[in-house]
Design a protein around this nucleic acid. Structure first.
Lengths: 341, 341
DNA sequence: ATAAAAATGACAACGCTGGTCAATAATTAG
DNA sequence: CTAATTATTGACCAGCGTTGTCATTTTTAT
């Protein structure tokens, strides 16, 4: 029933130690012995006892994902990507939703790492953008990877996966400009998330490039929620000088804006074009479907985990491209900005 | 830095073994020694090493949650509830999204249990309704808890948390009836989920009680998705004899129906009342907000985990009420059925 | 005071890894 | 082709931090 390393050794005709060497892909094991052992492992369906490994090596085979994000779609996608990578590398994923604003959040994270003896941690906004968290993690010597907004890799950000919100927002704004819009409004997300700032900057840059002065009234503060989109759009459409297009910081906000527009009997996209960001299911559940930027969350999460494993796994082949991944969300044009007739 | 059971023992002036006994709340430890040990544990902030415990006792301190559900909100809520209970009892949660229709799903589940050495498993639909999964789990002797649709506890369902969809659906339908509607349509969810059938039955029972013959055209098959709601409502409103109310099998479907109605310029709730089910964020992000039945997913998940722990923990106090929890989602009246003016 | 019961402790596992060193095999140099 | 060198493997031991078993001590009841 229970297959131990002993059984594998006997079956492969090698010593326990050699099996162990193979399991930990240590150097100086001949290729054919590796194969022989692998064959035995497969044949016996050997599953190393994680507890014993953990105990003996004081290495752990689980990573944690800490988050505080009301966007269920985002979280689910992240989990999927992380799990994919974990399964591939034989790691386990421990999820830890929590409140980022809790006063003793740093201690909480440290406790988590120590209690569950995590090999590493994946952080998404807002945690990935909290310097004291990063500092604390470095202090206790845990590997971690952050998923953050940014476009230019740098040594300082060596443990980051970058999502180039700036460029993607630039592209979306440009798309609206190319459709002839000049009165383009921007619905912000939460200030605490740098993604909102980056997307705003991209929007402003695109306008600036065309020599269009940004109308300050067109930049509406808000948060990453449907309600915020409803409110923001309503406010915009009550202006004397209304925008002809709205770029919302994410799909949820855009969906809110869309809804608000329908209530006011504003034709989309004829009277008002609306674009979102993220390509979440929201963007497909509206009518018309939302133009958006596809943010490949599952892939981003996979890469983040891969990056983490590169550090946690001692003998992994380091000859992989060790450069930081940068994701640029792709423009996805749908009917909320262009009528397809 | 690292506090072991040894430190606690020394600090409390007892043997390692006694500390171990306290940790596992074994009987036959004198009360004052327990206190002494507890004090030492608290003082030193001792965290038992899960790996060592696991290895020595071949008991595990993690449970798994297996699911295949496109409803991100539902999954997130479930995770939250399970995690709450896990934290309380010192367990860890391993999530395992997968494809329920995969041909070797049973083997996959067994592998998961054996590889991760799970103490138990929580299943939600559709897994909780697959007899061969339950059979396989029983065969390998893993504890598991199922969350299923049902109203009457029975010994056969001893490891189940029941959600009384029937009664809740009855209440919703009744609410519509009390508003004077007699032409009430029903938008089904996926056939594979028994919840859809139960809700349909509740709907039919409520109609029958009033002596209203159900119009077969008013029962529209579908799936738990926004699109299904759009299609279903459209189909209904194209009938010669239109319904005056729609009861959708969940909020997502209802949101679709609502959207479809808006497109057709049908006033909600004046011309058409719409009710959903679940009280997911969907039900609050529509306008008007949806009348629905509040399904307390977080609590349901907590209870499920508690039920599981009652079986996995050997020395837990069994004098807790061991009866099966039954949840009856509560009617939540909002503006999609009654104009608040 | 003595038997029985309750509480505690000593010590060997649990399955694996890390280290050290010896034994063997493969490779290279001469 | 042989000796010297190097690469690979194995044997063995000592943990890792707990729990299980069983012997021992303490307490309680008679």
């Amino acid at each position: 029933m229970k297959v131990t390393i002993n059984d594998v050794a006997r079956h492969a005709g090698v010593s326990i130690k050699t099996v162990s060497r193979v399991m930990n892909n240590e150097p100086s094991v001949r290729k054919d012995t590796v194969d022989k052992v692998q064959a035995a492992i497969n044949e016996l369906q050997y599953q190393p006892n994680a507890a014993a490994r953990n105990l003996a090596s004081s290495r752990s085979f689980s990573i944690g994902y800490i988050y505080d994000n009301p966007n269920a779609y985002y979280v689910i996608d992240m989990q999927r990507g992380l799990l994919d990578a974990c399964r591939k590398h034989g790691y386990e994923l421990l999820i830890h939703p929590t409140n980022a604003k809790s006063p003793d959040i740093v201690q909480e994270v440290i406790d988590l790492v120590q209690h569950s003896r995590l090999a590493g941690l994946v952080l998404t906004p807002p945690f990935s953008e909290m310097p004291h968290i990063a500092a604390a993690l470095e202090k206790i010597g845990v590997h971690f990877v952050r998923i953050i907004s940014g476009s230019t890799p740098s040594p300082k950000l060596s443990n980051c996966v970058l999502v180039d919100d700036f460029t993607a927002a630039f592209k979306i704004t440009n798309h609206l400009l190319e459709l002839g819009h000049t009165e383009i409004a921007f619905l912000c997300g939460d200030e605490e998330h740098s993604s909102s700032g980056e997307r705003l900057a991209g929007y402003q840059a695109a306008l600036a490039k065309r020599g269009i002065a940004a109308n300050p009234k067109f930049i509406v503060p808000g948060s990453y929620s449907f309600e915020s989109g409803v409110k923001g759009a309503t406010k915009l459409m009550e202006l004397a000088k209304k925008p002809t297009a709205i770029f919302a910081c994410n799909d949820e906000i855009a969906a809110g804006a869309l809804f608000s527009a329908r209530l006011m009997n504003i034709a989309i996209p004829q009277q008002l074009a609306i674009a979102g960001f993220e390509n979440s299911p929201f963007s497909r559940q509206t009518w018309p479907p939302l133009t958006t930027a596809h943010q490949p969350n599952v892939t981003i999460a996979q890469q983040a985990a891969e990056l983490l494993f590169r550090h946690t796994k001692p003998n992994a082949s380091k000859n992989l491209t060790d450069k930081q991944p940068v994701f640029i969300p792709e423009l996805l044009v749908r009917e909320s900005t262009t009528s397809n007739s």
